[in-house]
Structure formats: C-alpha cells, structure tokens
Computed example of a mutant assay.
Amino acid sequence: MALNSRMADWRGRTVWLLGASTGIGRATASALHAQGAKVVVSARSADALNAFVEAHAGALALPLDVCDAPAVKAAASVLGARGALDCVVYCAGHYHAMNATHMDLRDLLRHNEINYLGALNLLDAVVPQLLAQPLDKRTGQRAHISLMGSVAGYRGLPNSLAYGPTKAALINLAETLYLDLHDQGVGVSLINPGFVNTPLTRQNQFKMPALITPEEAAREILHGWARGEFEIHFPKRFTCWMKALRLLPYPAFFAITRRLRQA
C-alpha cells in the first residue's frame, strides 16, 4: 500500500539534498540528475560540491553547515525565491563507534547536532515554505520530505551509544511528521539503510554484513519513492532481519546482541 504519492518522473523537479558531498547523498543526487531533476546539493565542503556540479551540468551547489540554523534558513529562502521545492532530502550524518565505557561527551553531542538537530534546522526552514506551495497536478502533493535514518535506530546495539539514539530520534520524528503533514499535501518518507560502503562506515573494524555501494543505495531510494513508500529500507536481506529484532522480548534481544558484541 502506497503511503505517499508515487514519485517516478523527476524531469524538471527541484530536489535539495543536504549532506550530498559524499556517500549515499552524493549518489542519490547523481541518480536524480540522471533522471532529469534539478538537483541542489549542500554540505560543508564547497570543493566537493563544486566537483559535483562540474560533473553534473545544471546542478546547483549551496555550501552550508546544517548546524548553522540561520545558514540553512537563508539557503531555503534562496531556493524558495527560485521556485517550488519538490523534494527535500536530509542525509547529513556523523558517525563514530562508541560505548559507555569509553564515552566522549563532545562527540556524543556532535552526533546529536548533525544527525538530529540539523534535521530540525532544515524542517524549521522549509516546512512553512512547502505548506505555502500550491498542489502539484502531477503528484497531488505540495512537496516531499525524506529523512535519512538507519537500522541502527531500530533498537540499542553494541558500539552505537552515540549514533543509534540520534537515528531512533529521526525515525520517531519522521513518523510524527507524516501524521502532521501528509493530509496537508506534504509527503514524508524515512530512509533506513543497512551497511553502505561510505567514508563513515569504512571506520568500522568488523565485517559488515550485506554491504552495498552508495549507487545501489541510491537505486533503492528512487525505487522506494516511485512506489510511494513511507519507510525505504535496504538491503532487504539484512534490514528484514534487523526488523525482526524489534519484535523480540528483552531477554531474547539482549542474549542475541551480547553475542553480536562478542563476535
């Protein structure tokens, strides 16, 4: 059952991706550009964004720090003045493995600032703007918002003290946004990847099961949008197993995750 308008025709549509200098964000921006979208990419690295624009004619770079609320709001205003925003994708992320015996408060807060508070900065800047846009005759909606979560947000996991809670917050946020905005003509989707080969995951010192490329992740995301899905999770051979963990009672869940920690 489609919970959102199906988005398959990207020709001429404006999509703003925040956190698009590397990894899943960049690959998704490239895939959208190939489908004819007007792609706007934002991140802190101006050099990386400019390199993307050079390789993708017609794309626009708007360097910014998602933790800088005034900068995010200013960028949203610039884009609003250029016309309607059809889709906004928050894929900025920060990750370091951490557990409670080696807690780093500064890095804990950095995870929160980028992974969660940055999303709030974006929503504060764009939601009023998107609600003021007219309904699109092709989709029947005003715009669409996608938040990049993670299966790490499903339940508490080893070495995920800093990262997991921020993704759990994004999952809850996306669910609430859907309830609040769907009937107002703004679609909302949640993207929950498993392991994707990006600069963030390359820090991991363990074998990552069902590891996929950013390009494969981008194809899954576009497929999910085309199907009108609320939650877009991939690869299914891993994420469905992670979903099963959510259903376990605590004794069974903790027994399994202890074994994961010792592996």
Rank of each mutant, 00 (worst) to 15 (best):
R11F: 08
P158Q: 04
P251T: 06
R155K: 12
T139R: 15
A61T: 00
V39G: 00
F253E: 09
D183G: 12
L117P: 05
R237V: 12
A37T: 05
L260G: 11
A92E: 07
R259G: 08
L200H: 02
V151H: 00
Y178D: 13
L181M: 09
P63E: 02
L120T: 09
L122K: 07
V39H: 01
F195M: 02
S30T: 11
S45Y: 03
L130W: 05
V126M: 08
L108Y: 05
L173C: 13
K167A: 01
A226Y: 08
P193V: 03
I232V: 15
L64P: 02
L161E: 02
R13L: 11
R246L: 10
L170D: 06
H56A: 02
E231C: 12
G187E: 09
T213G: 05
I171C: 12
L222W: 03
A51S: 06
L32Y: 05
S21T: 02
L79Q: 03
R6G: 10
G58L: 03
I221C: 06
E231Q: 14
Y90K: 11
F206K: 05
G19Q: 03
G194F: 01
L245N: 05
A34Q: 14
V188N: 04
D86T: 07
R227S: 14
G156R: 05
H102D: 13
L247E: 06
A74K: 06
L245E: 06
N50Q: 13
I171R: 15
A55D: 09
L117R: 15
